[in-house]
Computed example of a mutant assay.
Amino acid sequence: MFAGSPTKNPVSALFCLILALLLAGCAGSQSSDSGPVYTVKRGDTLYRIARSTGTSVRDLARLNNISAPYTIEVGQKLKVNGATAKKSSSKSSGKTAAVTPSYVVPKSSWPPVGQRCWVWPASGKVVMPYSTSEGGNKGIDIAGTRGAPVYASDAGKVVYVGNQLRGYGNLIMIKHGEDYITAYAHNDSMLVNNGQNVKAGQKIATMGSTGSNTVALHFQIRYRATAIDPVRYLPAQGSKPKC
């Protein structure tokens, strides 16, 4: 579900995968001597580029010789469908044809509440809520004290433990089935290993301020690469999930 071109450097590939997962940005396309070209922006995925340019994911992969897991790099030039690209950049009645910004997350595409039994990853006040605005917060920030426990929001497999993504400090990512990934950023200590299976509510880290100026947990739920509002799916604070 995350876009990109293959690379022989596993660290670089992982970095691009995390970047596509955690950051949301704007998209842009341009033309070149070889035809319409899209320049990958921060936060892009192959699926978002497909939506914004009107080129199918299959065509994007074919045109650019991209194979799974579809990692792309910021600044990379991607060939897109010529007719669609021209249409999206053409002018009608003096106005540029509208293209839905990649940061817009329509709630109509979000999964139903209760599909999974999420638990709160930490105790504390939500000091920064989720936002669909351009450059807005793609998760929630939960304030707390240094060393406070951070819990897995659902059972799953740890797919990343590290601090290679600037601005997120010590980061843990957990995959839940085929459709969901949760992210836990700014941890002080990390108590799980890559590839480890965890249970819902299991302590995976302690709260910290790595990559941040304040002690807080930045938490995200991603559904098929789309950041969704965690508060919509979490139970009321202090209560257990009803599903």
Rank of each mutant, 00 (worst) to 15 (best):
A185Q: 04
H176W: 11
Y151I: 02
Q30I: 01
S189V: 11
C117A: 15
A200G: 09
V105W: 01
K8T: 10
M128V: 09
V126R: 07
M207T: 01
N81I: 04
A13P: 00
K87W: 15
Y160L: 08
K138A: 11
T145W: 04
V126L: 07
T132Q: 12
Y38V: 12
S153E: 03
V127Y: 00
V37H: 06
T145D: 10
A225K: 03
S109M: 13
G25S: 12
R42Q: 15
G94K: 10
R224Y: 06
K157I: 11
W120R: 12
L234G: 02
I49E: 02
T100A: 11
V161Y: 07
M1G: 10
Q237C: 04
S131F: 06
T45A: 08
D154H: 15
A183W: 08
K138Y: 04
A3F: 13
A20D: 13
C243L: 07
S5A: 08
G144M: 12
I204L: 07
N9D: 15
L21D: 07
N9S: 14
I72Y: 00
K203S: 01
G4K: 02
K95S: 13
S90W: 03
V126A: 02
P36E: 15
L63N: 04
S108H: 02
N170P: 04
L17C: 02
W110V: 01
S34P: 00
G195F: 10
N9Y: 04
S32A: 15
N137C: 11
A185R: 03
G25M: 10
G162D: 06
V57Y: 11
Q164L: 13
D141K: 01
K91E: 14
